[in-house]
Amino acid sequence: MEKIGLYLGCNIPLKAPDIEQSIRQILPPLGVEPVDLEGAACCPAWGTAPSFDLDTWCAVSSRNITLAEEQGLDIMTGCNSCFGVLSEAKHFMEDGERRRTVNQKLAKINRSFEGTSDIYHIAHVLHKKVGMEKIREGLKFDLGGLKIAVQTGCHSLWPSDVYAVKEENPYQPTILKDLCEATGAEVPHYSRLGACCGMGGMRSTDMEKSLKLFKEKLVSIKEETDADMIVTTCSSCFLQFDMSQPILRERGEIDFEPLPTFYYTQLLALAMGCDPSQVAALSQIDRSAIIARIQDEQRLIKEVA
């Protein structure tokens, strides 16, 4: 079984542990063993060290990366922001002078960044290491007939020059689409596929601007796809879709019911037959109906004799 360092970040272990649980449950049957990076901290998020000092950012990121380097493992993140922050920091660390300065800081906590671990997002691991065929083989339910709108999120797309693993065309991302289609579901295109959801710094700085942006994206999804659900590989996007749809609904700014939203590994865990009370338990939007449709007995894939 292939081992990989599981880098959890903040939102997933603290606010959305059902996502963590879904990751932990789906990987071993697909041949990947997640290894905990004991003591891993914040990536650090864009609004913290990166907003104050480049070297401190690189030091905190590099410390996280050394936790995997020590074990000879690559890193897999669940959160898009973590993927972006760690990848960019690693890119900055290619500059010899920066690496020396940061390693001097790390030396004080008896660590040294070597640059030997690659940074993956879990979507990359599933797409490139596990592969569509194996995902299909692991399904218990076939999601044929369900329509999914996908939200890849910004931080695994741009800037493509800092990512070791990436989309062929970041403006037409296909990794998450392929992963969702592997469950049998249909993934129609919508025009604002690449648009930002408005979570992050924007939401904490100016909620109204964030909601304005989010609404445009949401309406594009609803009008152009009439999807049954939204699936994302970004835990921040997940929170925006889950928190902000009810707000827009309550204000009367949208005239449709909020679309249930899943993190991708939650969807896959449900399709693999995992217990929803463990892998998809926490959300503002009621997901019970769509979960029941996903795990409907009629969708059970019959064993081929």
Binding site: Y171, H189, S191, R192, L193, G194, A195, E224
Partner: peptide
């Protein structure tokens, strides 16, 4: 900065 594909083969 970019184009987005809209229904009916229009472009945003």
């Amino acid at each position: 900065g970019g184009l987005e594909m809209l229904p009916e083969d229009k472009l945003r």
